[in-house]
């Protein structure tokens, strides 16, 4: 592990202050704005967790809804018998386990297979859960009654987001993070310098999936009533992809830049014109491909580099401390 430099310590302090300031929000409002804030923090957490894996590997994962639903269902099933903290841990382990299985089956192969597999994963888990519930239990829905209100969920999500950022930061500075950058550049070279590329990818996918599972678990009390179609809603997967790509996946904080405007716009559109959300998603995907392939952050970086003097920005230098 490399010791953090002065610049990083400063950034860390600033980030901590920022988190503290945001954590005060429920003191001022616990209506519409808090609800919107929960949505935003949820998507920031989801998109950042998604980017942990998909950013460096360029594999487009659509498994978010599956992990999220596994988390939600863990809480739904266990809330009567177990403390909430234990359920978060179980959600983490379960979704990490599913991520390991999916990763082992598909990550050795080309990216297309992975996309296709994850595309149907949420639907697959949903079918299995529905089938088990209708055939072996009394009913389809599950009630989740807890003491938690919107602001508790907000604080838990915010805390988890901080953990995700810290994890991402630690990974970037570790051998695993360096290995991922090499894999992203040239997988053949990566294997020939001794990197077990499949293991590195599966490991990262597990970390990403486990976080998403915890997010789903935290959100369960908000739903109060859990049904397979709402817990395994495939739209979540797509929204996470589009927001993360809009923001840009080259930086850990890139998705944040995409989430905030998109969540607000999407909320507004689905309230005013509920039939137009698909079109909005479609246009957003096309915009990412044709207009801003590196996301908003990538676009801003390129712009800044241009303004600074014509030449392309030199490759980012990792801070190695001797």
């Amino acid at each position: 592990m490399i010791r953090p430099g002065a610049h990083e310590i400063r950034m860390g302090v600033l980030a901590a202050l920022g988190f503290a300031a945001i954590a005060c929000l429920p003191l001022f409002d616990d209506g519409y704005y808090l609800s919107l804030a929960v949505n935003i923090v949820m998507y920031v957490a989801l998109c950042t967790a998604w980017t942990l894996f998909s950013g460096p590997t360029h594999y487009i994962s659509l498994a978010t809804a599956a992990f999220f639903g596994i988390g939600t269902y863990t809480v739904g099933i266990g809330i009567e018998t177990m403390p909430f903290g234990a359920l978060l841990a179980i959600a983490c382990v379960l979704s990490g386990f599913v991520a390991a299985l999916v990763g082992l089956a598909t990550l050795r192969l080309s990216g297309v297979y992975f996309v296709i597999f994850t595309l149907g994963l949420a639907e697959l888990v949903r079918q299995v859960v529905t089938w088990v519930q209708t055939n072996f239990t009394t009913g389809i829905g599950l009630y989740v009654f807890t003491e938690f209100t919107e602001k508790h969920i907000f604080w838990m999500l915010l805390g988890l987001t901080a953990v995700i950022y810290l994890t991402g930061w630690a990974i970037n500075r570790s051998r695993l993070g360096f290995a991922m950058r090499i894999i992203g550049n040239d997988e053949t070279v990566a294997a020939h310098v001794g990197i077990d590329t499949a293991r590195a990818k599966v490991l990262l996918f597990i970390v990403s999936g486990a976080f998403i599972g915890i997010i789903g678990a935290i959100l369960a009390p908000r739903f109060a009533y859990i049904e397979p179609p709402s817990a395994f809603n495939p739209m979540i997967s797509f929204q996470v992809v589009i927001m993360a790509l809009l923001g840009g996946t080259r930086r850990l904080w890139g998705p944040l830049v995409g989430v905030i405007p998109f969540t607000i716009v999407f909320d507004a559109v689905s309230a005013q014109f509920p039939n137009h959300t698909s079109i909005l998603m479609g246009l957003a995907f096309l915009a990412v491909v044709y207009l801003i392939p590196n996301g908003i952050t990538g676009w801003i970086e390129a712009l800044v580099a241009k303004l600074k003097g014509g030449e392309a920005a030199p490759a980012r230098k990792t801070r190695w401390i001797a």
Binding site: F178, R181, V189, V193, G194, A315, K317
Partner: peptide, 15 residues
């Protein structure tokens, strides 16, 4: 997308 130095380090880290 790695610097010259990082390219060399890549060879030393995982062997």
């Amino acid at each position: 997308s790695l610097t010259v130095e990082e390219n060399v380090i890549a060879g030393a880290v995982f062997g």
